[in-house]
């Protein structure tokens, strides 16, 4: 016996491959993305300078990131110069918001090499594989010589 359902409010239709039962995904909501940071940094030879320009190693670049599965770091450098980066992360006390302890875990190191095909625009997913969910991140950048202006945007993806 065919199964029938009401289609278009007034049409009674048999369930078939061409007219499947209407379904709706329940209890779901879209994953949103938030812009966490837009900053301009003068990248120098200081190995411990972060995107906010700070060389205080205990200061986070980003806080309150525990809800984000990953961060997408998009940036534009003023010139086609290699930029080195180190990404550090740590967790915080859920009550006080203070770090569980001093120091960081280094989760990524690398560089944006000079690239004639894409001399200015850069992108890095943090972390590159797996999930983030760290509470705080410190993103340090440096160049071998001279200075380079870098405009960064970081999007948190849940």
């Amino acid at each position: 016996m065919p199964v029938r359902f009401l289609r278009n409010a007034s049409e009674l239709a048999d369930v078939s491959w061409e007219s499947p039962l209407p379904v709706q995904v329940a209890n779901a909501r879209p994953v949103s993305a938030d812009t966490l940071l837009v900053a301009t940094t003068s990248v120098t030879t200081d190995a411990n300078r972060d995107l906010l320009g700070s060389t205080s190693s205990e200061l986070p670049t980003l806080d309150g990131c525990g809800q984000y599965r990953k961060l997408v770091w998009i940036a534009r450098r003023a010139s086609d110069t290699q930029i080195n980066y180190t990404i550090r992360a740590r967790a915080t006390d859920p009550v006080s918001g203070a770090p569980l302890e001093v120091g960081w875990r280094t989760i990524m190191t690398g560089n944006f090499p000079a690239d004639s095909a894409n001399p200015n625009w850069l992108r890095l997913d943090i972390p590159a594989t797996g999930d983030g969910y760290w509470d705080q991140y410190r993103i340090e950048i440096s160049v071998a010589s001279g200075t380079v202006s870098l405009v960064s945007k970081i999007v948190g993806v849940r």
């Binding site: 837009v38 998009i74 940036a75 534009r76 200015n120 625009w121 992108r123 405009v151 945007k153």
Partner: peptide, 18 residues
């Protein structure tokens, strides 16, 4: 091609990333 914009909707810089 792709690019990012700041909080005002202005591109972070000239050009695009391929």
């Amino acid at each position: 091609l792709a690019r990012a914009v700041d909080h005002n909707g202005v591109p972070l810089g000239n050009g695009w990333r391929s």
